[in-house]
Design a protein around this nucleic acid. Structure first.
Ligand SMILES: [Zn+2]
Ligand SMILES: [Zn+2]
Ligand SMILES: [Zn+2]
Ligand SMILES: [Zn+2]
Lengths: 161, 161
DNA sequence: ATATGTCATGTTATAAAGTAACGAGACCGG
DNA sequence: CCGGTCTCGTTACTTTATAACATGACATAT
């Protein structure tokens, strides 16, 4: 668990930016919410709500689900994390300056989830929606497969819990 | 529950085709699996596994979850149904001749899910995967919003259970 | 016909994910 | 001080999904 000072500073900066973003919206990144975000950012891959609960519980004793779900819901609303339906998990947004639909490449071996900036779908998607006279509210795009590091490996998933 | 004879025949034909498809693959669409598929087709929108359980239970008494989940898993493998992550549901595939990723437009008011044939994503998706050196296994694309019928309505969701 | 194997299903129990409802403390403005 | 709002704690529960084991049907081999 020896994280470099540099990384710690970068993390703090990131959290400060998130706090500022919330403040600018008249919302507050409370200590709990900040810590939950920190946990998710540090993980670097999607975490289940109950993973977060377990981590928090080591620090503060029993933590009930609503405590964490509320914070995660808040972070979702603020666009600071994304929900990953494929794994029932939550991952930190890599570009949280404004809310957007996530486009994720999720490795089924190591569990990493890479968020892609460029809109992969968009044009044809909106065309199709227009043809259907369908009013888009949100889009879920999740690509499952093997990341560069894992595509050689034949071994079973290990997903370093 | 007065379904027209025509519709019943069309449904039977569809189920027969599914059976033939399985047979051609050395698999068997057993009575249970056929009935589960029928239920999902008849619903015309995503059903939860427990919805299917309830319907089956009216016909045969207590039905335990594994019974239905196994059938649904089979139908998923055969590409006869799709899982809809957004609603934890299962919907009949509208073009099951060969397996494919579903691209679904899901109405959040009435619950219908329209499957689109044209690949909305593809080109740019594969480009991006190539750049990441990511080996695609499957793609989840779910568009949430309001269908043509529901986009006028302001009332709350009713999702005719 | 008896044994062996495979497949589908039944059955029990439990895990994993998510939410409803209520209450207590902090904090702010009247 | 009081009333509202916001955050979090707590209890209990619902919904979704799976593990593990048992049974019955059918096919094939001895
Ligand atoms: Zn993002
Ligand atoms: Zn990987
Ligand atoms: Zn389909
Ligand atoms: Zn609708």
């Amino acid at each position: 668990m020896t994280q470099s000072l540099e990384r710690t500073r970068a993390l703090d900066r990131r959290l400060d930016q998130a706090a500022e973003l919330c403040r600018a919206r008249g919302q507050s990144l409370t200590p709990l919410r900040r810590r939950v975000l920190e946990i998710v950012v540090e993980a670097g891959r999607p975490l289940g709500a109950y993973d977060v609960i377990d981590i928090l519980a080591q620090e503060r004793g029993r933590v009930a689900p609503p405590t964490v779900y509320r914070s995660l819901d808040f972070l979702l609303e603020q666009g600071l994390v994304h929900k990953v339906l494929s794994v029932n998990g939550f991952v930190a947004c890599s570009q949280a300056t404004r809310p957007h639909a996530a486009e994720l490449f999720i490795c089924q071996r190591c569990g990493t989830a890479v968020e892609v900036a460029r809109r992969v779908a968009d044009e044809r998607l909106e065309e199709t929606a227009a043809e259907l006279d369908f009013a888009i509210d949100s889009v879920v795009l999740e690509v499952r497969g093997r990341c560069a590091d894992c595509r050689i490996e034949t071994s079973p998933p290990h997903v370093t819990a």
